[in-house]
Design a protein around this nucleic acid. Structure first.
Length: 863
RNA sequence: GCCCGGAUGGCGGAACUGGUAGACGCGCGGGACUCAAAAUCCCGUUCCCUCUAAAGGAGUGUGGGUUCGAUUCCCUCUCCGGGCACCA
């Protein structure tokens, strides 16, 4: 063993060892219970960022820990390789997206290897490879046959910067999720997947996922947005206006109905009323984005149309209103201004009648004068509602729904916010949709034998839409049905399709004849999935849907793809800036800046190293190019080694929380590894330690040994159950501090120290595997530390004869006493009262009660 | 607006089931080694009072409650973060 810790050498050696032994390969026939540990696959953007490093370090820690516990662990890696950045890079550099992507993959694979992740690289998958996306196409055709995939012309979100259609989920505050550009509405024929058919199951099955964070489940439930209500028909000449309501009990309070501007009734009214026509046109022009809609003032116009109240037959006016959304429910609402905030605002503005039909139990109806006075929730009773008076929310809904059903004017129904998943993209760098347009036969699926439809890889988009459209060799084909010349579909699939099942393909990526095989049912479901919270809705919901589709086709035997989910927090760093001329902002990288502080360590300001002049501190934010506060993992690995980076990331914060980057924190992590290296070096320099004789240990030796075994128990719990890797590391640090402090040099001192150092190295092995290999050998063991069993706490070593109890008087800490482990209660009470530091607080006072918490404390209650 | 989190020293964080608040690390202060610096090691570091120490007092965003005992449970308010958002 070298005297000083040399990360570069240590890490190269360890990696060579693992590569030679094939330690990271996962085999179906290997011993041990299977364990599938999966990290979300990266987009090959060019270089790893700190978020990746954090993500994969967590996964690697769990993988190595599970392996040491005897599990047969699969940890694969792949590339979410289709997508827009490749096209943008192509436009900028005139390089085909394929070349750009594959080059990036090669570089990033090298980076991942340099971090020492125990990945089975033989299972690597890239979603842009025809052998992978062939099965996207194959399953899409099966979905088409089953009616799960269908074509529809509809209003879609058009991103004017990327020239592409976005799914609703990809529109954030009315802007494209990637470009931030304001989204426009366009009508385009496209393909949808019927995720709504699975809405109920996707919602209900959230209860079968105790290993998922509660907030992710809440977000998914909100996204699915189930509402149970009643569909009500309001008859008029020529039909009935359908509305959906969750408050059918308030039907007798309906004073008008309102329809969306795109509703057929609005079109009918507009035909012979220029005012209505003008309003409809205004809505079309203005109300484009959801964010605008949400903040818009409620507006509407009356029409000459009326509908009949389904129960009373009273005539109700039809309004066109901008607060009614065509895309939700029926695009029409019954308005009950007395009991709905929006209806109230609207009715007040346009002086429409307000009819109170719900009152608080045991009181008189309240006339609505303000919003607060009328918002009587679902726990009131009906009034002014004829035969329904006195009914509660539930009984009222049931009674009214029954009467509506009898007239064929209504029925109970469940409505979801979730919409079908539009997967067509007018982009080049994606998986081709395997369809052919024939003038005679219409839309014809590509026969299975002709799959995959291979995407030409040598095209370079120039920014003017999809280059496939201009590429004759791709577009021109013959119809598989009639043989006549035909046109190939040039739309590609949403890249969320690629990532909805990649985790299955790792189990069977060498199978060229089937999408999945028996090995998928062996390895899956994924035991532990790890990734960013930003995928809480889209990716995770689509994967759950896709898995069910495959299950229903008999391809799989499980329902949920991910048993446990860990959503890691983001990585933040300081932001420094100066306001330049004309209000422009110049951001400075944290390592260009020198912090200033006062004598207590409080930060008082920051100076730019280059010119010594102050810069403004703008707090912590996610690492990004625009804020110039990113840290390059490669630089760090070169400077400190992979183990130091991994250790800092696991130590600085628990995995779910945001992690604040700190260069001095990284240095602290390095210091700890150096200290450990030195401790092992000094210990082994004195020769082989004698065998431990537990019976011969003195008090201090016993204490140190007990701390070792207490630490073993804590670290196993922290890593195995709690996933609080930061506290596990802290406990190991404490143990090393105790080992270094222990001064003894006798044979049993050395034996205990050997046991402690071995324990420390084994506990750290999943976190800092390279240095653990060197130290393990240094401690005299020939094999790889990674093939060692995880150390268990020895119950005998945990035993103690006496322990310290805290003595409180009236809940305030006053002293400590040493008592025998098996001391009777009376003896403890007596010792507590006799303790000199406690005496002054109890003397001459009336002791009312003594609370003894075994093993913890004594609380003396005095008057 | 609704839903979900969160608030603890100068900083990141710990305290897991109601039982010693501030583990561990960073930063800072002091010291040792050194001609000097870096590196390393040792000591100190919640705040107040105190020459120092002992001892004492206060203290986990605010105000209240339950309890022998509350960072932890309940209610009120303030602020911060995230999600959804005219969803009928």
């Amino acid at each position: 063993m070298r005297e000083t810790y040399q990360p570069t050498e240590v890490e190269a050696e360890a990696r060579a060892l693992w590569e030679k032994s094939g330690a990271d390969r996962a085999r179906e026939d290997a011993p041990g219970e299977k364990y599938y540990c999966l990290c979300m696959l990266p987009y090959p953007s060019g270089r790893l960022h700190m978020g990746h490093v954090r993500n994969y370090t967590i996964g690697d820690l769990i993988t190595r820990y599970q392996r040491m516990n005897g599990r047969n662990v699969l940890q694969p890696m792949g590339w979410d390789a289709f997508g827009l950045p490749a096209e943008n890079a192509a436009i900028k550099n005139k390089v085909p997206p394929a070349k750009w992507t594959y080059d990036n993959i090669d570089y990033m694979r090298m980076q991942l290897k340099s971090l020492g992740f125990a990945i089975d690289w033989e299972r690597e998958v890239a979603t842009c490879h025809p052998k992978y996306y062939k099965w996207n196409q194959w399953l899409f055709l099966r979905m088409l046959e089953k009616g799960i995939a269908y074509q529809k012309t509809g209003v879609v979100n058009w991103d004017p910067v990327d020239h592409t259609v976005l799914a609703n989920e990809q529109v954030i505050d009315g802007r494209g999720w990637r470009t931030g550009a304001l989204v426009e509405k366009r009508e385009i024929p496209m393909y949808y997947l019927k995720i709504t058919d699975y809405a109920e199951e996707l919602l209900g099955a959230l209860d079968t996922l105790p290993g998922w964070p509660e907030r992710v489940k809440v977000m998914q439930a909100n996204w699915i947005g189930k509402s149970v209500g009643v569909e009500v028909g309001f008859p008029y000449e020529g039909g009935a206006l359908k509305v959906f309501t969750t408050r059918a009990d308030t039907l007798m309070g309906a004073t008008y109905v309102a329809v969306a501007a795109e509703h057929p009734l609005a079109a009918k009214a507009a035909a012979n009323d220029p005012k209505v026509a003008a309003f409809v046109e205004e809505c079309r022009r203005g109300g484009v984005t959801e964010a605008e809609l949400a903040t818009q003032e409620k507006k509407g116009v009356p029409t000459s149309l009326t509908v009949k109240h389904p129960l009373t037959g009273a005539k109700l006016p039809v309004w066109v209103a901008n607060y009614v959304l065509m895309a939700y429910g029926e695009g029409a609402v019954m308005a009950v201004p007395a009991h709905d905030e929006r209806d109230f605002e609207f009715a007040t503005k346009y002086r429409l009648p307000i009819q109170v039909v719900v009152k608080a139990k045991d009181s008189q109806p309240v006339q609505p004068t303000s919003l607060e006075s009328l918002l009587i929730a679902k726990d009131g009773v009906l009034c002014n509602s004829g035969k329904y008076d006195g009914l509660s929310y539930e009984t009222g809904v049931d009674a009214i729904a029954a009467d509506l059903a009898a007239k064929s004017l209504g029925a109970k129904r469940t409505q979801y916010r979730l919409r079908d998943w539009g997967i067509s993209r007018q982009r080049y760098w994606g998986c081709p949709i395997p369809l052919i347009h024939c003038e005679a036969c219409g839309i014809v699926p590509v026969p299975d034998a002709d799959l995959p439809v291979v995407l030409p890889e040598d095209l370079a988009p120039d920014g003017s839409g999809n280059p496939l459209n201009k590429y004759q060799a791709f577009v021109e084909c013959s119809c598989p049905r009639c043989g006549k010349p035909a046109r190939r579909e040039t739309d590609t699939m949403d890249t969320f399709v690629d990532s909805s099942w990649y985790f299955m393909r790792y189990a069977c990526r060498d199978n060229d004849t089937a999408m999945v095989d028996g090995r998928v049912d062996e390895w899956l479901p994924v035991d532990q999935y790890i990734g960013g919270i930003e995928h809480a809705i889209l990716h995770l919901l689509y994967s759950r849907f896709w898995t069910r589709v495959m299950r229903d086709m008999g391809l799989l035997k499980f329902d949920e793809p991910f048993t446990k989910l860990l959503t890691q927090g983001m990585v933040l760093n300081h932001i420094f800036l100066r306001k330049g001329a004309a209000g422009s902002l110049v951001y400075y990288s944290p390592d260009e800046v020198q912090l200033q502080h006062d004598a207590d360590g409080r930060v008082t300001g920051a100076l730019l190293k280059a010119d010594g002049q102050p810069v403004q501190y703008d707090g912590m934010g996610t690492m990004s190019k625009s804020k110039n506060n990113g840290v390059d993992p490669q630089m760090l690995v070169e400077k400190y080694g992979a183990d130091t980076v991994r250790l800092f990331m696991m130590f600085a914060a628990p995995p779910e929380l945001t992690l604040e980057w700190s260069e001095s924190g990284v240095e602290g992590a390095q210091r700890f590894l150096k200290r450990l290296w030195r401790a092992v070096g000094e210990h082994t320099a004195a020769g082989k330690a004698p065998a431990l004789d537990a019976a011969a240990l003195g008090g201090e030796q016993q204490d140190l040994r007990r701390q070792l075994h207490e630490t073993l128990a804590k670290v196993s719990d922290d890593i195995g159950r709690r996933y609080t890797f930061n506290t596990a590391i802290a406990a190991v640090m404490e143990l090393l501090n105790a080992v270094t402090k222990a001064a003894g040099t006798g044979p049993q001192d050395r034996a205990v120290r050997q046991e402690c150092l071995e324990g420390i190295v084994l506990m750290l092995a999943p976190i800092v595997p390279h240095v653990a290999e060197s130290l393990w050998r240094g401690l005299g063991h020939p094999g790889s530390v990674m093939s060692q069993r995880w150390p268990e706490a020895d119950p005998a070593a945990l035993k103690r004869s006496s322990l310290e109890l805290v003595v409180q008087v009236n809940g305030k800490l006053r002293g400590r006493i040493q008592v025998a482990v098996d001391a009777p209660r009376e003896a403890i009470e007596k010792a507590a009262l006799a303790e000199p530091s406690v005496q002054p607080f109890v003397q001459g006072k009336d002791v009312k009660k003594i609370v003894v918490v075994p093993g913890k404390l004594v609380n003396v209650v005095v008057a």
